[in-house]
């Protein structure tokens, strides 16, 4: 029994591995979905384009859904959060995991012709440190305070729905942390978000090991 870190070719996993090791988590990167029945938790990382999630084919989906059905925990990071939804307009023909309702959309610039009210132009992608707004209480957010900042790098974002426990505003408000049953998603990179990121990661890993 361990945590499965899914390596489906979505960029570089070095910093996720480093954070997991730092936090004392036991994990492996299974070669294929056949190994997942022995797993009690799954982490779907991801950077870059939603298209990379095409590698998470029907076999992976069934195996990941199986882990959750057996009471395991699923954490999606960045594109991994977006994948929890029905899809993304970044790759319109490609379905997401579909556990959460709604589709991810390109971050809209509310003021494309000029400066916004606070004098800052909303560039897309959204890169850098931005604040978390607590939408409701959740064990995922234990030890995290309103306004704590985390590191983002993305162009597409998930809608604020009933499963959104933390949101961030960049031109528009989007879901930066989601939780539904045993599924958690983080749009930012907890592995690159200093102490706040490590705390969020630890909250999930503690639950995964419980």
């Amino acid at each position: 029994m361990s945590i499965a870190l899914i390596d489906y070719g979505a960029g570089n996993l070095t910093s996720v591995r480093k954070a997991l090791t730092h936090l004392g988590a036991r994990f492996e990167t299974p070669a294929g979905p056949a190994a997942l029945p022995d797993t009690h938790a799954v982490i779907v990382p991801g950077v870059g384009n939603f298209e990379v999630t095409a590698a998470l084919d029907a076999g992976w989906r069934r195996a990941i859904a199986g882990v959750v059905e057996r009471g395991g925990l699923l954490l999606g990071i960045c594109v991994g959060l977006q994948w929890l939804f029905e899809g993304s307009e970044e790759a319109p023909g490609l379905p997401g995991f579909g556990a959460l309702p709604g589709r991810c959309r390109l971050i809209e610039n509310p003021d494309p012709d000029g400066d916004s009210a606070d004098g800052a132009l909303f560039k897309v992608p959204h890169v850098g440190w931005n604040s978390l707004h607590r939408k409701r209480d959740s064990w995922v957010l234990d030890g995290v305070e309103e306004g704590d900042q985390v590191y983002f790098t993305h162009s597409y974002a998930a809608p604020v729905g009933p499963d959104c426990i933390g949101s961030t505003t960049y031109g528009v408000e989007f879901a930066s942390v989601v939780e539904r049953e045993r599924m958690v998603g983080m749009q930012f990179h907890p592995e690159k978000s200093g102490d706040v990121g490590l705390r969020l990661f630890r909250n999930v890993l503690d639950r995964m090991s419980a």
Binding site: G11, N12, V47, G48, N49, P125, V127, T153
Partner: peptide, 13 residues
Amino acid sequence: LLTALARRYGSQA
């Protein structure tokens, strides 16, 4: 080279 690396690791890298 920029394009090749962006395809491989994502533009954020």
